[in-house]
Design a protein around this nucleic acid. Structure first.
Length: 503
DNA sequence: AAAAAAC
């Protein structure tokens, strides 16, 4: 490993904030952190001469970083704003962000999948920055946050496909997801991307009742990449049907939820420890659009020596998705707003997901809309596996227009035709219903506006508690949520959809 | 009555 010869003090802070520095809550009222940066005068990392400068503020001057032309690479030692086409240096490893997929030295088989099958052109921002960190030895652990719909899945899917040895027929990469639906979706992406690589993959999710077979009776897993949900993965490992001795990359999708106290923390830690006990230098990747401070603190305790990419929470709301709030006098008017206003106008605007808080409201709302003659389908965790699969498939195939869902689909669900999201009920914290669940809110609205597409979100509010929740959400993300003036005025909704760019 | 996974 190259040694950095520097007369500067080692960096105290290794976090790379690629949107901005994440200032957390109101706790830190201290002065802005001093930033330091160094220039590398030679391309060889062994022969570095560093000029160090200190200043306050952020490195967002393109000139300051546009040194590629002078054949000088750049080292970043502090909190920065990373621009494309710059090299950065975290701790002891230099990385250069990728402006093309070729820069990443992907195999021809992978490039073919990306360009011809998936029609990808260039890496997205998070891909350009995170992939070099994933693919460059010594394969450091990575905690990465990026906006909804910005292409996180591609980051870890390419990471897994690139690091697997095609000649070794044993599980080498494991990806853990919070829901069965997300595991299936991620596996589909992986199979498309890796179509020409010959790498084998398998889904480890609970089986539907008709095909159920206990792990004891199953043959051992031979697939090179396993994507699944925590319970099934854990069982596979403990039943010794999923051997983890060759696993060199472990991915947690929606990682903040996978490691949250009220999420899948215990299962996730158990799996991580099981793997690390046998396979000591397994690279761990954590990806999510949200990491609240509690999870962040926990992550830095359980993931050692890792690179980090974070986004300031005020910059997480998608600009392409316009958010609205609608005051509704009662339950019935909420149903009428959906039926007579939003769905009426939104019929030809793509697909719609309506989020509810409980399974019970899901079925109540489903009944109301069906009685009024609206074709809707509903998904929630109490349905049979095969029914869930069918409903998701119909929606993904565009056979259904409107889908009611619990927070089952709040995270990760990727359907580009979804332009409208309706919060029939706002997400609240389990322990305290007067506190909004900011992370879930952000994930829900991120179901619209995939990859920069236009979208609109309608929050249906009923009463003072909802208004207070909404206000807290606005303050938290520092985002303006426009009011639709009258719940029963068609023109107001038409104007809202126009302003969102959908009409 | 929170939802998710899985027994």
């Amino acid at each position: 490993m190259a040694e950095l010869k520097s007369n500067s003090a080692p960096p105290a802070e290794r976090k790379l904030y690629w949107a901005d520095e994440a200032e957390e809550e109101a706790t830190s009222k201290s002065a802005p952190p001093k930033l330091s940066w160094g220039e590398v005068a030679a391309s060889s990392v062994d022969a570095l001469s560093i000029r160090e400068t200190e200043f306050n503020g952020f490195l967002d001057e393109p000139e300051a970083l546009n040194i590629e032309a002078a054949n000088i690479s750049f080292i970043i030692l502090a909190r920065i704003k990373i621009l494309e086409k710059c090299s950065c240096y975290t701790g002891d490893t230099p990385y250069t962000s990728a402006s093309t997929f070729e820069d990443l030295k992907l195999t021809p088989a992978l490039l073919k999948g990306l360009y011809t099958d998936l029609k990808f052109q260039h890496p997205s921002k998070i891909q350009a920055i995170s992939l070099p960190m994933i693919l460059t030895p010594p394969y450091k652990n990575l905690v990465a946050q990026a906006h909804n719909g910005s292409g996180k899945t591609t980051c870890f899917v390419l990471g897994m496909l690139s690091r697997v040895d095609p000649n070794l027929k044993a599980p080498q990469a494991i990806c853990i997801c919070p829901t069965r639906e997300l595991a299936i979706q991620n596996l589909e992406v992986l199979r498309k991307m890796g179509k020409h690589t010959g790498i084998t993959s398998e889904c480890a999710v609970p089986m539907d009742s008709t095909n159920y077979m206990s792990f004891a009776k199953r043959p051992p897993v031979t697939a090179q990449i396993v994507v699944g949900t925590p319970g099934t993965i854990k069982k596979g490992i403990s039943a010794k049907k999923l051997s983890v001795g060759s696993v060199k990359i472990l991915v947690f999708d929606e990682a903040d939820h996978m490691l949250a106290e009220d999420g899948f923390k215990d299962d996730s830690l158990r799996i991580m420890k099981d793997i690390q006990r046998i396979s000591a230098h397994c690279q761990v990747l954590l990806f999510s659009a949200t990491f609240n401070q509690i999870v962040k603190n926990f992550v830095s305790r359980v993931i050692n020596d890792h690179n980090q990419l974070f986004v300031k929470k005020e910059e997480l709301s998608l600009e392409s998705v316009k958010q609205y709030k609608v005051d509704c006098p009662d339950e019935l008017s909420k149903v009428m707003v959906i039926k007579d206003r939003i769905l009426e106008l939104g019929e030809n605007l793509g697909q719609t997901i309506i989020f509810v808080r409980t399974r019970h409201s899901a079925s109540t709302l489903h009944k109301s809309l069906v009685e009024l003659g609206y074709e809707v389908t509903t998904i929630q965790g109490a349905l049979k596996q095969e029914d869930r699969d069918k409903i998701v498939k119909e929606f993904k195939d565009g056979l259904t227009q409107v889908l009611i869902s619990t927070d089952l689909l709040a995270r990760g669900f990727d359907q580009q035709q979804v332009n409208l999201v309706i919060n029939y009920e706002l997400p609240v914290k389990h322990e305290n219903h007067s506190e909004p669940d900011y992370e879930v809110y952000l994930h829900r609205i991120g179901r619209a506006g995939r990859f920069g597409r236009k979208g609109a979100v309608f929050n249906l509010l009923m009463g003072g508690r909802d208004e207070m929740l909404m206000e807290k959400i606005e303050r938290h993300f520092n985002s303006q949520i426009a009011q639709v003036a009258a719940w029963n005025n068609a023109e107001d909704f038409r104007g809202a959809l126009k302003a969102a760019g959908l009409l």
